[in-house]
């Protein structure tokens, strides 16, 4: 039999919800125990959070000053060392996991399965290709370790209430000094819920016309307690920062309710939202492709519709 190791994503302070989604994926592997590895400078708090996830057996705590920021070149050799005891190694298909897991796979000399969206057996999975326009079923060799990223939008976060044991590990691995973290600048969602965990997401597109007009989206989002997203066109035009971008490049999300305003619905955008339970589209162009996939569509001028919605909601 085997055992699954999930690499925790965190910011040094909080466990990212993507980790809990990976735990739900791991739960589909019948008979395999699931552990979580936390690589941090001081992982105490993150480990305590990880230990509460339902279905986790052990949390492996690896503290090292070099782990203060998640750099793939520093993390990968440590994970390759931890891998000895595991048959499956998973990370989330976020920029963190996408950066890290292929580096781990290459160090182990095995392939990587990107974006697992469903598990058929311990060694067979489904994943999207061509921006989600086709789904392939793949099989990996049973003698190799399975290194994979989990498409987080395909899984709900695992529930809390668990009580895994926390095990401290000291790894004897030489770490490179050729890569150095400098800084991160982010809008942090302006205090709003984050895109990955929000149940409601409101996104604006080029139809907003300017950075100033984007305030309409923020106001409506605040009214609904929603996270704010954006199309690539809106980010390219400088209306909003890149960490709000929803789509193939950007974040792939699965909220209960997604409201697309002034977004035409390029295929790259649709890729990022098609796991939403309900999609609402508001656009002045009745022929916009977004209406082909929207559950509720409204053709009209967003500058009159948004204020009306604010009054009605």
């Amino acid at each position: 039999m085997g055992r699954i190791l999930i690499i925790a994503e965190h910011d040094g302070n909080e466990l990212n919800p993507s980790t809990a989604r990976c735990v739900s994926c791991a739960a589909e592997f019948s008979g395999l125990d699931c552990d979580i590895a936390v690589l941090a400078k001081d992982g105490q708090r993150i480990c305590e959070q990880a230990a509460t996830l339902d279905g986790v057996s052990n949390v492996v705590r690896v503290d090292n000053d070099a782990n203060e920021h998640a750099l793939a070149a520093i993390h990968a050799p440590q994970i390759a060392k931890l891998a000895e005891k595991y048959s499956h190694l998973f990370g989330p298909s976020t920029t963190f996991g996408k950066d890290l897991m292929p580096r781990v796979a290459a160090l182990l000399g095995v392939a990587q399965v990107s974006d697992i969206m469903s598990v058929i057996s311990h060694y067979s999975f489904q994943r999207p290709i061509f921006a989600g326009n086709a789904i392939v079923t793949v099989e990996t060799p049973a003698q190799d370790k399975v290194v994979a990223t989990v498409r987080t939008a395909s899984y709900q976060a695992a529930a809390g209430g668990g009580s895994a044991t926390i095990e401290l590990r000291v790894l004897d691995v030489e770490l490179p000094s050729h890569t150095r973290y400098r800084s991160t600048s982010g809008s942090n969602g302006g205090g709003r819920p984050d895109l990955q965990s929000a149940s409601v997401v409101i996104s604006g597109g080029r139809g907003l016309g300017s950075e100033k007009n984007f305030a309409l989206i923020y106001q409506l989002a605040d009214r609904l307690g929603a996270a704010v997203g954006a199309s690539r066109a809106a980010v390219d035009a400088g209306y909003i920062a890149n960490d709000h971008q929803v789509g193939q490049t950007g974040q792939i999300i699965s909220p209960d309710l997604y409201i697309a305003i002034g977004i035409s619905g390029a295929i790259q955008h649709i890729t990022g939202i098609k796991d939403a339970s309900t999609i609402v589209a508001i656009n002045k162009d009745a022929d916009a492709p977004i209406f082909e996939i929207a559950d509720i569509g409204l053709v009209g001028d967003l500058f009159t519709i948004i204020p009306e919605l604010e009054l009605l909601l």
Partner: peptide
Amino acid sequence: RIKVVKTDSPPARQKGKM
């Protein structure tokens, strides 16, 4: 190493209500 067993079309979202 990764054998592709089959390729499917993704489940289509239905056009909803206007």
